[in-house]
Amino acid sequence: MKNFQIIRALSSKSAVSSIAKENSAMFIAGGTNLVDLMKKNVVAPDKLIDINGVDLKKIEFLTGKVSIGALAKNSQVAEDKVIKEKYPLLALALAAGASQQIRHMASVGGNMLQRTRCSYFYNTDMPCNKRVPKSGCGAIGGSNRMHAIFGASDSCIAVHPSDMCIALAALEATVLVEGPKGKREIKFTDFHRLPGNTPEKDNTLLEKEIITSIEIPTNNFTKNIHYLKVRDRSSYAFALVSVAVGLDIQNNTIQDARLAMGGVAHKPWRLTEAEEFLKGKTVSEATFKKAADLAMKGARSYGDNDFKLTLGPNAITEALTIAASK
């Protein structure tokens, strides 16, 4: 690993003003992804700004919403009693990600900013448009079993790796950020972006901006919810396909529905058409299958990941069935 300078920031304001002066500086929180990327020389900052001393760890239950500080640890959120009761989909998704050691280290903001685990992105001997713009994509025509089936481009078919973010997309969270030009809010589903011609950009954060917290509105998705994660082993592996489901069922009729998929796109993939279809329908296997078919419209595979075209709708149907039966 290339050596670097490290300084500690004690407020989000000082963190932003510290980074504003630097050309090659990065924030570090839990470090679970960044330290790994630095070891592999995928990123090599000259300076790290350690933000762990900034007071952004609180989970606050406010009127109509919960506010979760960007430095709250993944395990802290996953095991919070009130989160488990009022936002169980988020707790489930968090518990499905990484291992307990990593969840103890990883922050909520860092989870959102983690990079893809595409093997071409990590291997500096291979071309990768995300790592080195215009160098090409090794995964297209290469080993692409883990890769995207929605929203990919000729530049990049990598997938977003987080589980937590799939639940946050379904729960319509908001991201609060602070930068040299002040504070602003970003809709969660607008936070991550599709690769297009600029896959080096994972999200819509502007340069030198820092995430300070996320907010989730109060909702009725407390009972009929599920996070189904299909992976190569039963724990501690990235998703081949995952599905976050929130259903609001009254008298066997679906009043409201939220659906998002992981492991299939460059961002958490919200299934709005299937959600609209489900609203007002009676719970039945046929309804769920139809919703899954609608969700798969426009899917495209790249060889090794052809199986996701079948696994995807099966996972959606399964997740809906489990959620409805709770």
Binding site: I28, G31, T32, L48, Q101, I102, H104
Partner: peptide, 9 residues
Amino acid sequence: TRILSCLSL
């Protein structure tokens, strides 16, 4: 708290 020392600076 248990953590991974290889990923901790």
